[in-house]
């Protein structure tokens, strides 16, 4: 790397300079990205590979599928199913609610400044996840929460008498929506913007009603984006730990919570089972993310 030297202006052209430097310092060029690659290797790639490989190894080092088979016990299968359920539910509700909100704000005839405000808020709210979010919902819908009290004292409705409990599957799902919906809004708004006004007008000229336009043109065009974001929201909920830990703690056995307990204290009495558990989590979120990427590139191809 030639630092600080000045090139005589007449003797060289612009085309000469970069090429000469590149030729002279080819190994040095790679040096520029070496720290990054080393960092990624040591603290991102290798740890993940370690887990993946560990899932297939026994304590003495030989290859085995026994760890994965060991996942087929009731409590782990239950945890997997529970995780799937909450991820599917919050992804679905997040998609529907997020789409409704995004549609309302981008093309629903609302004042334009509401759109910017909503997008800004969504940007912040999608980062509200974790421990503070759990506290916020406890403070609002817990036994002494503001909403609970208001509903009881002002409207005479005791939600806890109906069997509702914030510290439950339902409560956690409700809490998850707080960051799922904003994420949906952020991702689907560009796709909604991509729905050209002329399509709707052309459809109208050809006799279509609003509903027919949505059914026959807009929704099919949005479909890849919707499905892809659904997959993304699914993966997002599946891997979430902090919110669950702070809200339901060990009482709701979703996969990340079990893995957490296993890492902390080997509650499953088999360290390699932890690997297998982690591996299955990677597979599930990996597939979901893969679907998201595939569908997103397909959506982009259609609507140039």
């Amino acid at each position: 790397m030639i630092a600080g030297s000045k090139q005589p202006m007449a003797a060289t052209t612009v085309r000469d300079l970069p090429r000469r430097r590149l030729g002279a310092s080819l190994p040095l060029t790679w040096l520029g990205v070496a720290p990054f690659l080393l960092f990624a290797l040591l603290f991102l790639i290798l740890p993940t590979i370690q887990i993946v490989l560990g899932a297939f190894r026994t304590p003495d080092g030989s290859v085995t599928l026994a760890n994965l088979q060991g996942l087929a016990v009731p409590n782990i299968l239950n945890a997997t199913w529970l995780s799937m359920k909450i991820s599917l539910l919050t992804a679905l509700l997040g998609c529907v609610a997020g789409l409704a909100l995004a549609a309302a704000v981008t093309r629903g005839g609302l004042p334009p400044w509401l759109r910017d405000a909503t997008l800004t808020f969504s940007g912040v709210a999608s980062n509200f996840a974790g421990v503070p979010l759990a506290f916020a919902f406890i403070a609002t819908l817990g036994r002494l929460g503001l909403m609970t009290v208001v509903l009881r004292d002002w409207f005479g409705v005791n939600i806890y008498a109906t069997g509702f409990n914030l510290i439950s599957f339902t409560g956690l799902a409700l809490t998850y929506l707080y960051f799922q919906i904003p994420l949906m809004v952020l991702i689907i708004t560009p796709a909604l913007d991509g729905l050209k006004r002329e399509w709707r007008e052309a459809a109208e000229c050809l006799g279509a009603s609003g509903g027919q336009y949505w059914r026959m043109v807009a929704l099919p065009v949005l479909w890849p984006s919707l499905l892809g974001t659904f997959a993304l929201l699914f993966a997002n909920a599946f891997g979430a730990v902090a919110t669950a830990m702070a809200l339901t703690g060990p009482s709701l056995s979703i996969m990340p919570i079990i893995l957490f307990a296993q890492i902390r204290g080997d509650v499953l009495q088999d360290p390699h089972l932890g690997y297998a558990l982690a591996f299955s989590m990677i597979v599930i979120t990996g597939i979901a993310n893969f679907i998201y990427i595939m569908l997103r590139s397909r959506a982009e191809r259609w609507v140039k």
Binding site: E198, E204, C205, L206, S209, V217, V221, W302, V303
Partner: peptide
């Protein structure tokens, strides 16, 4: 009348063909 009731055909500058069909 709404556009859909007028029996009018329209061609736009940006073609506006439905991409999914």
């Amino acid at each position: 009348q709404r556009p859909s009731q007028r029996k009018i055909g329209m061609v736009f500058q940006a073609y506006a063909l439905f991409p999914n069909l």
